Computed example of a mutant assay.
Amino acid sequence: MENKKYSYNPTTTSLKPLKPSKGKMFRNIAAFLIVTAFFGMISGFVFSKKVNSPEENTIAVELEEMRIQYELLNKKLKQSQEVLGQIEDRDNNIYRSYFELDPISEDVRKAGFGGVNRYAKFTDWKYADIVTEVSKNIDVLNKQLVIQSKSLDDIVISAKEKEKMLSHLPAIQPVANKDLTRLASGFGMRMHPILKIGKMHAGTDFAAHVGTPIYATGDGKVSMAERQGGYGNVVKINHGYGYETLYAHMSKFKVRSGQSVKRGDVIGYVGNTGLSTGPHLHYEIHKDGTEIDPVSYFYQDISPDEFKILFDKSQQMSVSLD
């Protein structure tokens, strides 16, 4: 039933419907519209906010966890790069330097990646920046590891070659100390005992009894084992790397030409053949065809003090035995 308002007329004893004023009518309409608009805005705000499903909530949590893990991984990568950097520094300044290899430049070790942008596929990802950075760091680290591994391969090869070279160097005395009667003459200008003239003495004389063993002073191949003029019975050993040794005045050989020998092998025996005034071994070292003082290469059998005494004695001799 319509809710209407009436006025009572006592004269006619009747009810007359009341008509609302226009002002009041407008106020009522305005209030209604305001209230309607307010509730409409509230409803729109509430219902416009998306409500995630349980699966979507789980994915969101996993994505956030993934972001955290990527950041941790990136920190570990940077720590690994720092450790590798220390290894690279030792590699350049110690290992490669010792084996006379050129250092690897920083540009080569940490060069970037040119060409196509290999990280473009991450552009539309939610965490594109962190994923891209991690991927770049992994690629750079992998490249550094490959270069460092190659460097270590070079060092191993050089170490083996160095070991081989060191075994070939003439580095011990050809006559053992226990068998020496004396060091007769050293390297330099000496008076020849037979020719009675000053002559360059290109080696060192080791006085010892006839038959005393003579040892190869380094690995190599016998290039000559025969009688040769004033040197008498001579053995020459080619050690490679520009080194050759000569052993003269031997009583007899124990090797033949073309035979390979190792440091410490007996190659013959002390004698008095050729132009010699007494049993001894005349020993020479040649480097690239030039005679050098053998006393500088006796480092395995003697101490520094013994070396100084040996060197002083070699310089005091004025007459050689050959």
Rank of each mutant, 00 (worst) to 15 (best):
K22S: 11
V175F: 06
V131K: 08
K16S: 14
L275E: 13
I94E: 14
K4R: 13
P17F: 05
L166T: 13
E64Q: 09
Y243V: 04
G211W: 09
K199M: 12
I302E: 01
N3D: 11
S257D: 06
R27L: 15
R190N: 06
Y283K: 01
V210A: 07
V35W: 05
V116C: 01
S151M: 05
Y70E: 12
E226V: 15
N233V: 07
D124N: 09
T277H: 04
L72W: 09
K22H: 08
K252Y: 07
S296Q: 14
V140E: 13
W125T: 14
M25A: 14
A225W: 07
S14R: 09
K143M: 12
S14M: 08
N238E: 14
D139F: 04
D89L: 13
S260W: 01
G271W: 01
L169Q: 10
V266L: 04
L152K: 11
M189G: 07
M250V: 04
T212H: 05
A31W: 10
A128P: 04
A176V: 07
A202T: 11
T290K: 14
F298C: 04
G44W: 15
E161R: 05
Q79K: 09
Q259E: 06
R190F: 08
K252L: 00
R227D: 11
A208V: 06
L33M: 10
V175K: 04
L63Y: 09
F26N: 09
G264I: 09
K254Y: 11
I292Y: 07
A207I: 03
A202L: 10
E88N: 15
E163Y: 07
K78H: 03
V175S: 05
I214T: 03
A202S: 10
S251M: 00
P10S: 10
G218C: 02
W125Y: 15
E284P: 02
Q259S: 02
S318F: 07
I34Y: 09
R90P: 01
S7F: 12
G229R: 08
F311C: 03
Q81G: 05
V210W: 06
M189K: 14
F32R: 12
D91F: 15
G115H: 00
F298V: 10
R190V: 07
Q69F: 08
G268F: 04
E106M: 06
S97G: 10
G258E: 02
I302M: 09
P279S: 05
K143R: 14
M165F: 06
K199C: 08
E306G: 14
S80F: 12
Y269K: 02
